[in-house]
Write a protein that binds this DNA or RNA. Sequence first.
DNA 1: AACCGGGGTTCCTTCAGGGAACTCAACCTG
DNA 2: CAGGTTGAGTTCCCTGAAGGAACCCCGGTT
Lengths: 151, 151
Amino acid sequence: MQRTDFGEMACSIARTLDVIGEPWSPLILRDVWVGMNRFEQLQSDLGISRKVLTERLNHLVENDILERRPYDKRPRFEYVLTERGTELVDMLMVMVGWADKWLAGKAGPPVLYRHHACGEISHVELTCADCGEPMHAGDVDLVPGPGAAGD
Amino acid sequence: MQRTDFGEMACSIARTLDVIGEPWSPLILRDVWVGMNRFEQLQSDLGISRKVLTERLNHLVENDILERRPYDKRPRFEYVLTERGTELVDMLMVMVGWADKWLAGKAGPPVLYRHHACGEISHVELTCADCGEPMHAGDVDLVPGPGAAGD
DNA sequence: AACCGGGGTTCCTTCAGGGAACTCAACCTG
DNA sequence: CAGGTTGAGTTCCCTGAAGGAACCCCGGTT
């Protein structure tokens, strides 16, 4: 990202940051997710510098988070989430859950989620993909994996 | 964060970024999570500038993500996760899950998680806090909440 | 008294973000 | 068919944050 190259670290968090860790990138992802797909829309919604928006969009396209596709015979383009990008939105949903709990203040959360499966206003919970029980920071031990540092 | 103030946006993602969106902050959080609690440890492990590390630690303490506590009669301090901070680590676990799936490469993930409840090597899955079914980006509708923009 | 080690501060340089102006290639419009 | 419009960028300059090395302070230790 900005100065130090996180992508080379043997750390999944650093590698993720290398893709969406730069300023504005998560907000761009959110906007694209909710249907703001064009350069002008993104620029005016976020108030981001056009130069930086160009850089971020290119970076997200290079990393296969967004796809740039023409939507007109004129040179007009829109950005849509790839499968990879869509799965990154999960991370945003966790950020939202955290902020709604700890930072929302008395006004309450700005946006709510209605879950298709049950129809309820709800939020995400982290569970173990294996047993289905809750799986949070204190519920795991870390063990070195095949790609551990030292390779 | 760096130039634009995300904290004032009526967006839970922006507010979270205001707390841990600056460069290095998620990596500091990770290191503290896995037991690196002291300034010198963090500095040498991350290779971060001492100046920036000081700034980040202060910011995280101000935002009640970390607590700075003395561990000696001498002026020595260590940083430990607060409850708020611990819950933020959930977000890191999702980042790890995403990167392990999409970026790990042939070496495989550098770190694995063993879930206390079931003893298996596993990873996090997002589920609906209400019904328990999977809840991903495509499984929800967004509806305005009480703190929506315009207030 | 001299040294050491943890935990920072100071200062300087460099580079990324902000912001306004400019470009360019289709389309409209009279 | 000259002139304007719109979307999607590019260029340029200025400022401020990241990098990095040197320095400082304080309480032990020798």
